[in-house]
Amino acid sequence: MGHGTRRVQAGYVVTADASAHVEDITPLPPRPLPHILFRQWWRELVFLHWAADPDEVARLLPPGTSPDFHLGRTYVGLVFFRMDHLALGRGPALPYLGSFGEVNVRLYSRDALGRRGVVFRSLDCDRLLPVLTARAAFGLPYRWARIRARRTDSGISYDSLRRDGSGAGARVRAEVSAEPYEANALEEFLTCRWGLHAQFRGRTYYLPNLHPRWTFTRAELTSYDETAIAAAGLRTPREDPVSVLYAPGVPVRFGPPLRLPRGS
Rank of each mutant, 00 (worst) to 15 (best):
P67A: 00
R203A: 07
I229Q: 03
E187V: 02
P256T: 15
H211E: 07
A51F: 04
I36E: 06
Y142G: 02
S154N: 14
A168F: 02
F100K: 01
P180C: 09
D126W: 01
G233Y: 00
T26G: 03
E56V: 00
W214F: 15
G101C: 03
R31E: 15
G202T: 06
L33S: 05
Y181G: 11
F120I: 04
V118Y: 04
S99C: 08
G114E: 10
R148E: 00
Q40C: 08
V79F: 10
P27W: 07
R171H: 15
L207Y: 06
V103D: 03
S160D: 06
F216C: 03
G155F: 02
L94D: 06
G89M: 03
I25F: 10
A183F: 08
P180F: 07
P251W: 11
D111Q: 03
P141C: 08
F80Y: 09
R135K: 02
L207M: 11
H21P: 09
L86Q: 13
H85G: 10
A87W: 04
P241N: 00
S177C: 04
A18E: 14
R238W: 14
A51G: 12
A170Y: 02
L88F: 06
A16G: 13
L258A: 13
Q9K: 14
W42F: 15
W194L: 01
G263H: 12
D126N: 13
R203I: 02
S99L: 07
R262I: 15
N209W: 11
R171V: 15
T5L: 15
H70N: 07
T222Y: 05
A247W: 10
G139R: 03
P208K: 07
L97I: 06
F138N: 09
R162N: 05
L97P: 01
F80G: 01
R253A: 13
E23P: 04
D164I: 08
F189T: 04
R193A: 08
R150S: 10
D164M: 06
P54D: 02
L37S: 15
H70K: 01
P141D: 11
Y12K: 11
R262G: 15
L190D: 06
P54E: 04
L28H: 14
D55R: 14
L234W: 02
V13R: 11
E56Q: 08
